[in-house]
Every structure is written in structure tokens, then in C-alpha cells.
Amino acid sequence: MTESTKTKKQKPPVEESLLTCGHRACAGCGEALGAKLVMDAAGPNTIVATSTGCLEVFSTAFPQTAWRMPWIHSLFENSAAVAAGIEAALRNKGKHDINVIAQGGDGGTADIGLGCLSGLLERNQNVLYVCYDNEAYMNTGVQRSGLTPYNARTSTSPSGTESFGNQHQKKNLLGICAAHNIPYAATATVAYPQDLMMKVKKALKIPGAKFLQVHVPCPLGWIHKSELTIEVAKLAVSTGLFPIVEMQYNKVTRTRKIGKDRRPVEDYLKLQGRFKHLFTDTAKDELEKVRQIAQANIEYFGLE
């Protein structure tokens, strides 16, 4: 920092985060922001297991680490099971007051790690699982995942003369998790940090298995300007494409209404290069399908 800016020496706005600065995430990374908020909401009395993915790679290049809490990374698809082992160890040693968080990307959670996650939820072990949903395998160069939205372009679901991008629906991960009849399953977004942090705190107070899916834009993969992360995340909610809801024992208990803030899906899509191919004459029907997905979400959860 140069001295020419004649501002008064300011106090840091918050004390140092548990996921501290200096790591290697891209500018505007929604996942880095989401994880920081989750960690600070959970507090230092927490042990964390993380799947392979951007989050792990950008934060732990040896001999450095950005984590100021006990943290482990094992593999791409096992953070839920590793956390289950940690929880069992703590329980057996009579340490009942320590939070255990498992976390991973959408790929590590909804695709390759779904078996381990299901096991954890079935056993209802006292662990909070957090999925940072940036809607593709970012760490390996933006390949599609089971949570990539319909018609999004990724490196393995490119658009072309015969395709409008990803031809599969986004998996209903919240529904899958909630169907294990766990005490708490919810979605959140970096667009609304207080809501996200409140949910983490609330979840950690509930004994048993909890699940939280956090929508985290990825400027690199979604191809949007890095300063638009929050705006893009807000639009995902106000278009109805990413509903913000809470569920307890497989029943919806609370939703974030959109009401008169509702925006057309185009407002969300047009900010992102991954949907650019939808704004052509030939893509009209496909754009309509995305509208229908938003409408279905809004009706299903009663977000109007």
C-alpha cells in the first residue's frame, strides 16, 4: 500500500477470518467468500473436512495454509465420511462440544461423493455438510457436474450447432438430502451473508446431520465480471433459478419470497458468458425452457 492515499489508518472492519486472506482464489470467487462466511459463523471450535476442489487447492499449497482451524483434506469424494470418522472419534473421547463441518464443491457432493454423503445423512451423525455450489467442476477447468444448470455451457457440455450446452437438469440435491429425513436441510447464497451465517449457526445448534447448499458464483467458469459476483448471486434468487429455502425433517419450513422483486431470467443469464448462446434467434425455445424451470421452482416452493 502506498502512503499517498491520505486516509486515516483504519481499523480492520472485522477481525481476521478463520479462512484468512492471501490464498490463491480468483478475484471475485464466490466459493472463497462463501467458505469464509461459513467458517466465521461456525467459529474456531470447529474441525473441518474438505473435498478436493478449488477450495482446497487455492488455500493449502504446502507449506502454507489459509485455515486457522483444524482442517483436513483427504480425497475428492469422501469429506462426508472423513467428517463422520472425526465425529465418531470425538464422541468416543467424550468431546461433545466441538463442531464438525464437512464441505465440498457441487461435483464432490452431488456426483462422486453422493454415496458417502448419503451414508452420513442416514446415520444422522452430528455433522454439518456444506456444499459450495458453483455449478461445475471448476478446479479441473469448468466441466459439467450434476448441479450444472440446464443449457449452461461448460467445457464438457459445450454449445454447438447440435447443442445448447448442458442437456441435463440440475439435480435436486436439497430434495435428495432432505429425503434422508435429517433435522435440517437448507439452501443459502453469498448474496445474503447474514442469512447464510444465521443458517450455519442454527444448523450447528441442532444435533444430528445437517445439510446446507450455498450458491457461489464463479467468475472464471460462469464467465462474468469478477465485481459482479454478488449481483449475479442475487439475480439467481430473484429470477427463481436458485430458491432459498429451509427444510426440517423433509418438510419446507421457511422460504425467501421473491414477490415484487421478481426479475426475468434473462437478467441473470445475460451477465454470464456460459449462457451467451441462448441469446440468438434459434435459441428462443431453449430460453423459454429456462423460464419454465424458474417458474416451476417458484410454484413448487411458493416463492411468489
Binding site: 474441525i47 483427504s74 480425497l75 465420511a81 472423513v82 470418522g85 472425526i86 465418531a88 472419534a89
Partner: peptide, 10 residues
């Protein structure tokens, strides 16, 4: 993976 996590937790 469970025993890995347990062992890592001491």
C-alpha cells in the same frame, strides 16, 4: 474414509 478421519482426529 471414516477410519481415516477418526485416526486423523487422534
Amino acid at each position: 474414509s471414516v477410519v481415516l478421519g477418526a485416526q486423523a482426529a487422534g
